[in-house]
Simulated assay, not measured.
Amino acid sequence: MKRLLAGTLTAALVLGLTGCAEPADEPLTEKPVIYLYPEQKTAVSVSLDYAGTLTATYPAYENGWHVTAEPDGTLYDEAGNEYSYLFWEGESKPDYDFSKGFCVAGADTADFLHETLAEIGLTPKEYNEFIVYWLPKMQENPYNLISFQSERYTDIAKLDIDPTPDSVLRVFMAWKPLSKPQTIEPQTFTPFARDGFTVVEWGGCEVK
């Protein structure tokens, strides 16, 4: 039986909704992307049990995603179309935990994310894609309060993956902008080992 190593980290970023997203009463779970890294070419099915409303998916989520995954993470659908990852976005009413985290000056956001995401276990490709999505929303704020979520996120966005992965890392950042620095107990992270069929997800939420 395969071992399921759940390295679950989520970073909840709280900031007013910006960019192309319309203002909403419910926080937007933005751009969770799911990477699949099997040890050999494998047909994989992924289903998402989300306690909210999906607002966008790519490729289209139709009773789950059904793809063929290569060891380098390249995905193909049944029509042969190629993807780098599975994307989804949705609205929900989460209660994210900000009891621990980090208060980071906006100008220091890029360096902070680079160092912290690498420590959590993302590869350069993964954390660079994370940073280029979130940095424009955060770097102009005087400060950002950042907390990486675990069960507060995974309990509302459950993944069912077949075949069962050996290693799972889910990084979800909750954050909000601050005008002044705030004292907060720092988070610590358990090292993540990529062993066998590995699944990695990252996303975030701008909390008002």
Rank of each mutant, 00 (worst) to 15 (best):
Y58V: 06
Y96R: 05
T18Q: 10
E70P: 06
G73A: 08
E89F: 00
P163H: 12
K158M: 14
T55S: 06
N144Q: 09
G64E: 01
A56Y: 14
Y143N: 06
K158G: 11
L28G: 02
R194K: 15
A21T: 10
P32F: 01
I146F: 03
L48R: 08
K208L: 10
D166V: 11
Q182H: 11
F192D: 04
D160A: 13
T57Y: 07
V104K: 07
T116V: 07
Y35A: 06
P23S: 04
I146D: 07
T10V: 08
E129I: 04
Y133W: 11
F189D: 07
E39Y: 03
S150I: 00
S179M: 05
T68Y: 10
Y85D: 13
A60E: 11
T123C: 04
Y133T: 13
T57P: 02
G90V: 10
L178K: 00
S92W: 07
A6P: 01
P32S: 10
L86F: 06
E140K: 04
K93G: 00
T53Y: 10
V199D: 08
T42C: 08
E26K: 15
H66V: 13
P32N: 01
W202Q: 00
T42N: 01
I161N: 10
L54Y: 04
D49H: 12
L75K: 09
R152K: 10
F130D: 12
L4R: 12
N63H: 14
E82I: 15
W65T: 00
F148R: 06
K31R: 14
W202T: 09
A118N: 07
T123D: 05
D108P: 02
T164K: 07
P191Y: 05
L5F: 15
L36I: 03
T53W: 14
N141Q: 01
L4V: 11
R194I: 11
S147M: 07
Y35P: 03
T188V: 13
G204W: 02
D162L: 05
D166K: 10
L169E: 06
E129Y: 01
F130Q: 09
D25W: 04
H114L: 03
T68P: 01
E115Y: 10
A60G: 03
T183P: 07
A6T: 04
G204E: 02
A105F: 06
L86Y: 07
E119Q: 14
M173W: 12
A11D: 00
E140M: 00
Y35N: 05
P71A: 02
G101S: 05
E129D: 15
G7A: 14
P165N: 04
A107E: 07
W65K: 10
G106S: 00
E126T: 00
L159M: 09
M138Q: 06
L135D: 05
T68M: 05
